Computed example of a mutant assay.
Amino acid sequence: MKILDRYILRKYFTSFIFTLLILIPIAMAIDVSEKVGKFIKNEELTIEEILNDYYLNFIINYGNTFMPLALFISVIMFTSKMSGNSEIIAIHSSGVSFKRFLKPYLIGATIITIISLYANHFVVPDSNKTLEKFEETYLRSIYKKKTKSSVSKVSLQLSKNDYVYFGYFNFKSNNGYNFSYEHFEGNRLVYKVIAQNIRWNDIDSTYRLSTYRKRFIGTHKDSLDSGSFMDTVFNFEPKDLLYVDYLAREMPSLSLSKHIKQSENRGIKSLNNYKVELYKRTSLPVSSFVLTLIAVTLASKKRRGGIGVNLAAGIALMFLYVFFMKVSEVLGSTAESIPLLMVWIPNLLFGVIAAYLYINANK
């Protein structure tokens, strides 16, 4: 690695870390001012729990969220400073092309992207789980609790031929009512089980049906079997009946991907929120390349207004990117959309802008 590469990479990472260390304390200060009253009201809550369970995970979560913003601002700032000091003119005068000048920036963006990908897919979900549990326990009022204690009128497709239906299920008592199970062969119903009550036994992962009836559908005549109790096994757990958005943020990507595939096999349709969460864990880190390229092409040219003009243009583009990102996530969550396409639209759109700026800067 040449001296120029080491010089730019050192500025790249020091500026990035410095910017991140400015943004995170600001976010923490705002958060503390909003929640200090709730912290005080919970007398059993200790300083150690607040720091370890809440703010440590707060830093992980928001640090990863602010990473593209911090990267974009830092690259504009130190590159504009290099341009203002005529360093970039001297670099080009020595025979270094703009394409070669970009090399250390892309190396830095690659390192940031790899770190962010690992954090997004494996670290942040566990952090979100701890953060969600803390907020649910100490910070939300009783009227704003997110945890659903029950569901009603819910069905699952367990396999190609097996379906279950619940009139009601309570997650606290693991008890359900008006349960039915249907088994098909092709389009023909082979048998159906109906029970007034169904209870999940967490110890041995079985279900107990109470006051049940099992009807076998024959070609000419049906047969009926009934009883007070029957212990059996089904290919699902009570948690599979619950589909809420915040659960997706708490799942590692492998578990989330498996959950989406399994849910689709069971006939669940409203999974776009889960897919958006999975896809953006990759699209957001990859934006480091796009934003780095835009920042360098904007800031490498010496301007009369100095660093202020470059910074203003960069922040305007950054807010546009964040705006498009949030809009695409919302649109991607709708039933009619294609989540993968919607999540990647901001990167594709700003990738075109980056390519245009690069071509002009290269000239």
Rank of each mutant, 00 (worst) to 15 (best):
L278I: 05
A354T: 06
V32S: 01
K302W: 05
L298M: 14
K192S: 09
K192R: 15
N57H: 15
G332T: 05
S173N: 13
K35T: 05
T334E: 15
N362G: 00
L291I: 09
S173P: 02
S127A: 13
F236V: 01
R304P: 00
R208Q: 11
V233S: 12
F13A: 10
V330L: 12
I359Y: 14
I76M: 06
F350Y: 08
L298R: 07
Q157F: 01
N197M: 11
L20G: 02
Y181V: 06
T14Q: 07
L224Q: 11
L317I: 15
F236W: 06
L291H: 12
L56I: 06
G186T: 13
P285Y: 09
T297W: 04
L254Q: 12
Y243N: 13
R188C: 00
L51K: 03
L45D: 05
Y177L: 12
K160L: 13
F216M: 14
I40W: 09
I50L: 05
T292C: 15
I194S: 11
N310T: 06
L284A: 11
H220E: 14
S210R: 13
I260F: 02
G95A: 09
E43N: 12
D162H: 10
Y7E: 01
I89P: 00
I338C: 02
L271D: 07
G306W: 09
F324A: 08
I88R: 09
F39W: 14
S94A: 15
R10S: 11
T19A: 15
A119D: 01
K81M: 08
Y62G: 00
D202L: 07
N85G: 04
N187H: 07
L357P: 03
M28A: 13
Y62M: 10
D245I: 03
S94I: 10
T206Y: 04
D225H: 08
Y181K: 07
K172V: 11
T232P: 00
K133G: 09
S283F: 09
S180H: 00
P25F: 04
I3N: 08
K269I: 13
Y165M: 08
A27N: 02
L320G: 15
N187T: 13
Y191A: 01
L291N: 14
E34V: 03
E336R: 05
N42W: 02
S97I: 08
G305P: 03
E132Y: 14
K221E: 15
I359C: 02
I26T: 10
T14V: 12
F179R: 10
N128I: 09
L21Y: 01
G63R: 00
F39R: 04
S149C: 00
I91Y: 02
I353G: 05
T65D: 00
V164L: 08
K280N: 10
V190D: 10
Y62V: 12
H92M: 07
Y118M: 09
K275S: 04
V193G: 02
K99C: 04
E44L: 13
F171R: 04
K103Y: 14
R249N: 14
E185H: 11
S149V: 10
I111K: 03
R281E: 04
S93L: 08
L278K: 11
V296A: 07
M67I: 01
G227P: 13
